[in-house]
Amino acid sequence: MSEFLSYFRQDRLPHIWCPGCGHGTVTGALVRAIDRLGLDKNKVCVVSGIGCSSRAVGYLDFDTLHTAHGRALAFATGIKMARPDLKVIVMTGDGDCTAIGGNHFIHAARRNIGITTIVMNNETYGMTSGQFSPMTPKGMLGTTAPYGNVERSFDLCELAKAAGATYVGRSTSYHVPLLIDLIEKALQNDGFSVVEAVTQCPTYLGRKNKLGDAVQLLNWIKDQAVNVKAAAVMPKEKLEGKFLIGELHNGPAPEYSAEYGELIARVQRSFENVKGGLWECASNSD
């Protein structure tokens, strides 16, 4: 572990997460993937929104930005477009990403902007103590679903793919080697990447639904996960109530900030004498 501690602001530890929470496992998977790729710490920027998952960035030793609820991807868009050379990572949760931040999510995917988004999906709003989220399975209990959740939940990976993300994968806080592999590949994709990490919330989701302690909850998650390769040869009825893990989509396409960079080069070629612009001083560019 000690070799990975260098990726953390050790003076900010211990973290605020509850005993048995899966978010630390996902954060650990991220730094392991970063380590494997040997990324320059000074060129990595990690952005988050609001919620339990979003507190991860405060512990990481990069340029980090803990923003407003749902807006991590919009802040990250500004950073990536202003500094396309930076590796921009967003850490978010199911409520942050798919409810209040849903619009930014689909547009970041549509643009195929070079941001790696890690969604820690614990199927509940943990920070506010267990309300149902757009990812809470139908029928489950939450403090705002005392008679069972009647809403349908998103398949986040299908949503990401449909909206234009070019790398999509799902793993869990149980399947850690797979999670590290997926994050590593996601970080290597130039465009918009999404890795959904299903994690356990024993304090709220687990307790409210009488699913047991953290270990039992991890087993509950494990039992629902089916690797996409295995699923390919399984009969449909056996996949009822399961979710797929593994690499779900890998379709590289031109990345937005790079495309905009080409636009700049094209415009500058055709306006060699920039002095024709609205403000002449602008030619003294940085």
């Binding site: 477009m81 202003a82 700049i264």
Partner: peptide, 27 residues
């Protein structure tokens, strides 16, 4: 673009202010 700058049309005004804050943080 003429001076190497960037224009982004965001999905709403919340995203717009968020993006300029992000850009400002890069200097």
């Amino acid at each position: 673009p003429k001076m190497g700058g960037c224009f982004v049309q965001m999905e709403d005004e919340i995203g717009s202010i968020a993006a300029i804050i992000g850009a400002s943080l890069t200097g």
